[in-house]
Design a protein around this nucleic acid. Structure first.
Length: 274
DNA sequence: TAAAATGTTGGGTA
DNA sequence: ATACCCAACATTTT
């Protein structure tokens, strides 16, 4: 479920509280998991020992990571493909996907639900060890189109796989990449070093507008309807194979690029530009 | 029933 | 070093 807008939505809800108490200020009184591989670092034993009695000071996001600065060390959670984080009263029954649970001192649980079990939690004294490998934040003020131009021109890669590379740019996933490329009118296989200044600026604006639109709609993910996220009703190409492009009416095509399903309009994002 | 799925990583190849 | 491709991870949904 999670790309940047979904992770941002989760972080905001946890931080502000949304039908549940805000997380900052709460203390973790116990930790349990029925899927030990959720714990990526340090060892399960060490993680369990060090997480006890830590106060959660804040909830932030970096790329697709949820970042919880604690009174000592920092907890990182990555939702991968199917993860979700939500607060529930401790006495509420767990559902079958609630694999990892942080019990808080206010009677609530922070529950990591994860059907496919790809998600990871970790604890670092210096989270930059992990977060420092990420590319820039696409919504940060210092992410200018000039900077994007320099980044693109320094590489010779197809646009779609490059935009999905988290060490290039942090936060885009398969949905928002397809959406941004369509809005920019760029073919997914276009080489990064061939973009003109005008095209870079269009891509830059499209990336930011797609992500902001996702955040405005509280995320896109299909399974998120119950949480109010409804961006999936606004997809321009993703999951719309065979349906008409809203801009020109041509049928949206689906191909595979870099092993990922890729949706685009063969007219608005013509192969002629390759 | 087979195929695809919002992500990442590691291995092999060129 | 750069770039590409595929398998793996584990399970649900279409």
């Amino acid at each position: 479920m999670p790309e940047l807008p979904e992770v941002e939505t989760i972080a905001r809800n946890l931080r502000e509280g949304n039908g549940s108490p805000p997380i900052p200020g709460q203390r973790i009184v116990s930790f349990s998991t029925d899927w030990p591989r959720h714990v990526a670092h340090p060892s399960l034993h060490t993680f369990n020992r060090r997480i006890q009695n830590r106060e959660i000071v804040d909830v932030k996001r970096r790329g697709k990571y949820l970042v919880f600065p604690l009174d000592h060390e920092t907890l990182l959670i990555h939702l991968r493909m199917s993860g979700d984080l939500r607060l529930a009263p401790s006495q509420d029954p767990k559902d079958r996907f609630d694999h990892t649970i942080f019990s808080l001192d206010n009677g609530w649980d922070l529950r990591f639900s994860d059907a496919r079990k790809f998600g990871r939690v970790s604890l670092y004294e210096d989270p930059e060890v992990v977060l420092g490998r990420l590319g820039p934040e696409p919504l940060a003020p210092d992410f200018t189109h000039d900077r994007l131009a320099n980044m693109l021109h320094a590489r010779k890669r197809n646009l779609k796989p490059l935009l999905l590379d988290q060490s290039f740019l942090a936060g885009l996933g398969n949905i928002y990449t397809d959406e941004a490329l369509h809005q920019a009118g760029l073919h997914p296989l276009r080489r990064s070093d061939s973009l003109t200044k005008v095209e870079v600026k269009r891509l830059w604006r499209s990336i930011r507008e797609s992500l902001n639109m996702g955040i405005r709609h509280n995320g896109a993910s299909i399974d998120w309807v119950f949480r109010g996220g409804d961006f999936q009703r606004h997809f321009r190409v993703y999951k719309r194979e065979g349906e008409p492009c809203f801009k020109c009416g041509t049928q949206i095509q689906r191909t595979v690029v870099g092993g990922r399903g890729t949706h685009f309009c063969p007219r608005c994002q013509s192969e002629d530009q390759l």
